[in-house]
Design a protein around this nucleic acid. Sequence first.
DNA 1: GAGTGGTCTAGACCACTTG
DNA 2: AAGTGGTCTAGACCACTCA
Lengths: 262, 262
Amino acid sequence: MAPLSSGVLGSLDSTSDRAVFRQIADRLREAIDKGRFKEGAKLPSESELVEHFGVSRMTVRNALSVLQGEGLVHSEHGKGVFVRPRPPVRRLASDRFARRHRDQGKSAFTVEAEAAGSRPEVDNLQVKEERPTRDIATRLGEPRKVLARRRRYLLDGRPVEFAASFLPLDIARDTPIAQPNPGPGGIYARLEELGHRLDHFDEEVRARMPTPAEVKSLHLAAGVPVIHLVRTAYDTEGRAVEVCDTVMAADAYVLAYQLPAN
Amino acid sequence: MAPLSSGVLGSLDSTSDRAVFRQIADRLREAIDKGRFKEGAKLPSESELVEHFGVSRMTVRNALSVLQGEGLVHSEHGKGVFVRPRPPVRRLASDRFARRHRDQGKSAFTVEAEAAGSRPEVDNLQVKEERPTRDIATRLGEPRKVLARRRRYLLDGRPVEFAASFLPLDIARDTPIAQPNPGPGGIYARLEELGHRLDHFDEEVRARMPTPAEVKSLHLAAGVPVIHLVRTAYDTEGRAVEVCDTVMAADAYVLAYQLPAN
DNA sequence: GAGTGGTCTAGACCACTTG
DNA sequence: AAGTGGTCTAGACCACTCA
């Protein structure tokens, strides 16, 4: 166990009434912010911190868990605690579903990802008929049953998003939309061929901490929230023809919208 | 210390290799999800859980901290641990800055909040000239100095958002925009009067865990992320005339966008 | 004053990673 | 084998809340 070079981390203020583990978290956070520990770098081990600050191990662990909760560091069993590198961010443009993007053979996700130099994958594709949840039913105008299309998206092997599309069954039954691969331009192209010319989309954006199931499915590190996006597609008759419910790893996305001033 | 009625919480599976504190967190989460503890209800005390599960107090606290990290519960010193009530959500419509909303005397925030039956406040209003950060400078076309307008917004006494607007100094200096109260319609109305007719806005949306400063300023509970929104306003000449950097308590907001299909 | 959560100690054993 | 983080125990004292 190498001794910790003094000065990199300050010492504690015993007169302060700030809890010791918070002071330790503060020192480490400052050191990270000031670049004394760079992205991906290993923090001093728990034993080193115990010795340096003269506290018990639980106090050190408590401090480290604060930083984990902030998404600043992550731990690897048997290796150490590391400054979390910021992963490359995928930008979702608000015009990604515009009609002019729908003539290609590939999905929006695939095209965008390849343009950004990433390797896209789609996973766990599942298509089935089911009874809608209360929320989905309300958004779709109370259909008795819906067609559900679920899938997970990965970039360079990392799962980043999963999405579930719901369409009223009277629209989607026995159409290419009910096939695993709906064909070029995706389900929006098929909807238009079926006479549902799309007029506009509503998107609702929320952020929250993930459920345990989402942590597992998206391999989320501690301190990473999710963006929850619900998009409803309307045809020119004003009918809601699809709802897409998407959960994204927040550290992998930035959403970009362009709004007219008028 | 009243005994814990059995059945509300299951018991542990000693054959499982899942950590005990995770199993306890799972039992509590299930009980909350199934409505056995409703919003605002108090969970069993730590001592009760210690007795019920036959583990040490640290193990129980570890389990509770998992649920706090998920934003499911919050603790109050001396009182107990409670199921987090979901606060009323403020909906931000994407047309909130459309020109037709700018003829009123009140700010968008005030009008919206009052319409929703909430009591709006603006706080910590601060206007000053400063050197832009790298990011702001890039977005605004590299002005040497900017006018910065910072403020915090509260709903029914709860801080929910703070925002900083930056404008190139050559546009804003010695105009009503440099006044604490820029007058009816806000700074966008003033910009148009100054000949900068607004064309469109770009918005970038991210979500992340808050910094300690944000936790303090927004009184954020554990397990509540922030939504970070950066809006750039462009005039009809294509010039960026304002950047607004906003940080919102994610449990208080849902952003709503309407996108044309074409 | 009794009950609650907040902080901290000083150990222990385990699982994982690396040389 | 040595070092790391993961889990858990059995205590202790404190600060806060409520009756």
